[in-house]
Nucleic acid binder design. Structure first.
Lengths: 341, 341
DNA sequence: CTGAAAGCGCTAACAT
DNA sequence: ATGTTAGCGCTTTCAG
């Protein structure tokens, strides 16, 4: 006997009550005789009654769902953000529809449209590396869809954001390299359209400027954000007349790719070339890679809270929350006096 | 003007048609004049009409959602399975509610109940490491909830499963160690209640038996499945009178933990101790860990297909699909003649 | 305290 | 080809 067919109607007729009374008994308790309420509850349990949320949602014009769109969730970063999100929203009775765009802006678009069709009440988004769906998000803003962007944002868009100060932490990382005594610091940048790429490049330039080091264009290369792309960077950098003695990579995957590629060439890290990453990853940690760790769970939690607030009141002013991060120094970057020779 | 309030009623009255006609125009096309159909479509676009799925779902008594419950999705393994799942079900118009139990059986229970309350049409599950919710899943089977279990299964439960032959691949791995000339092979096993723990232990024992190697109880230790737990294993194994020269770990995280711990002690891999893992991970790959790779995407896809079939016809016989895997031999295990000395 | 009735937005007989 | 009507399961006035 599949319990799925039991409705309040069955309970009502079994008890000789009206469906209205049953509904009242099942929900809040105002205006209901305690005794009947208990009879209803007992019968409901007996029949394995399960409320039909869809009916309730139709009536209330909500569905307690939010959508999340991230570029990928294979690596720890977005999964941790998602866990933070779920922790908050589940507590408020919300479910999360998670989509990954696999770094494809057309899939991202499809995902967002699917979520819209599913009538999610709000969206948390981190955009793909080419950031091509400006029009879509502009329309959503116009349609007053509650949204929060995290990590990879669209600065031109007037929406809630949760980020870290990529520029500042890139600065700190490069400053650390400078203070370690590295003289020729290269930067492997990410996809040019990405907000984080621009910010981290800015930080790199800021640091050079702050220490009076002239910028050398040939030390900057846009390689993207994937580990496999690091090889291109190393191929290029290692044949420069003035070979860099340190590399600041846009993120940990690229930095790890660099380390593997450098090792393959018999170069020692950090004696021959130092490497620093960004957005500390478990792999980077194991490889003793200097990197900036982001408060991933926190990002998710804050974003979720902002979204719920916006769902509750769609007239709140747009807000950007900037969270703290941390530069973790490891053996991939060492001051001169601590390096082996 | 929030487009969210437009219903077929508005379209109907704007056009002087009945809502039935509008509905017909919007959906399939039987019994509808092409001209009116186009008028309706045009008006719908003009008004930014979006159908209310909830109403449709209520009527059709389905909601095009399935639930997925996994122990975690921080590492690549379950995320890849999930991507496989989504690829299949999205194509069929289904959305996926993803929950992670964080290896807690009480959270797992809560997740499943939430998904049930959300009225998902089916469930894909990989159980937590203590596998404590037998009663829950038994009830779901009784209630005829379509379900497929993947990777971590409950063998006592009569449900669809998608797995690899853990026993066989563990055998192959240990056989490889034996053939490499390792004489004293330890096994760090996972949580005792886990199906994969038992199967992989079986495979280990099978291999020893096949090569006439006596089992030494003290070479088997249950350490769990997490990287941090490897230290216990190494602490224990490295002080045995007959110290093992090879370790077969229940999975990659434990194997990686072993490698790090052995290195810390100045032991060389594989010269002093060889290490093999299971369920190949990106980190393991980078560390040149011998391991068995599982067809994660495929697992997800097959599971999704089975689930959709079961949703379409709930009287299909229960099925267990066993997929192929692959032993990838790397530098953490080498034959005698290839090892450095 | 309880029941009757309306209606959330949509689809699907059943008429015409 | 189109309109009328009933109803999916539930909540919520409005009466009593």
């Amino acid at each position: 006997m599949p319990s799925s067919k039991i409705t309040i109607k069955e309970i009502a007729s079994a008890l000789g009550l009206s469906i209205a009374t049953v509904s009242r008994a099942l929900n809040g308790s105002y205006d209901i005789h305690l005794e009947t309420k208990e009879k209803v509850l007992a019968k409901a349990r007996e029949l394995h009654y399960k409320p039909n949320i869809q009916a309730r949602n139709l009536l209330k014009r909500r569905n307690n769902m939010i959508g999340v769109v991230v570029p990928e969730f294979i690596t720890f970063f977005f999964p941790e953000i998602i866990i933070g999100i779920q922790e908050v929203v589940n507590k408020h009775g919300y479910q999360v529809l998670i989509c990954q765009s696999n770094e494809s802006s057309s899939l991202e678009r499809k995902n967002v449209e699917m979520l819209e069709d599913s009538m999610v009440e709000g969206l948390i988004v981190s955009v793909t590396k080419d950031s091509k769906n400006m029009d879509l998000y502009e329309r959503l803003v116009q349609d007053r869809m509650p949204m929060v962007f995290v990590n990879r944002v669209l600065p031109q868009l007037n929406v809630n954001q949760v980020v870290i100060d990529d520029r500042k932490w890139a600065f700190q990382t490069v400053e650390h390299l400078i203070k370690c005594g590295y003289k020729c610091i290269a930067h492997l940048a990410g996809n040019p359209d990405l907000s984080v790429t621009k910010e981290r490049l800015h930080g790199y330039l800021d640091a050079l400027a702050a220490y009076g080091i002239p910028v050398q264009e040939q030390l900057i290369m846009y390689v993207g954000i994937q580990q496999e792309r690091a090889k291109d960077g190393i191929d290029y950098l290692m044949v420069l007349k003035e070979r860099p003695d340190a590399i600041f990579a846009v993120n940990d995957p690229v930095a790890v790719g660099c380390m593997l590629e450098l090792r393959k060439r018999g170069l020692r890290i950090p004696e021959d070339v130092a490497v620093a990453g960004f957005s500390e990853s478990p792999i980077g940690k194991i490889m003793e890679l200097t990197s900036v760790s982001q408060p991933t769970f926190e990002i998710g939690k804050i974003a979720a809270e902002m979204l719920l607030k916006q769902i509750a009141n769609n007239d709140l002013p747009v807000e950007t929350v900037v969270l703290e991060a941390k530069l973790n120094i490891r053996n991939s970057t060492l001051p001169l006096n601590k390096r082996a020779h």
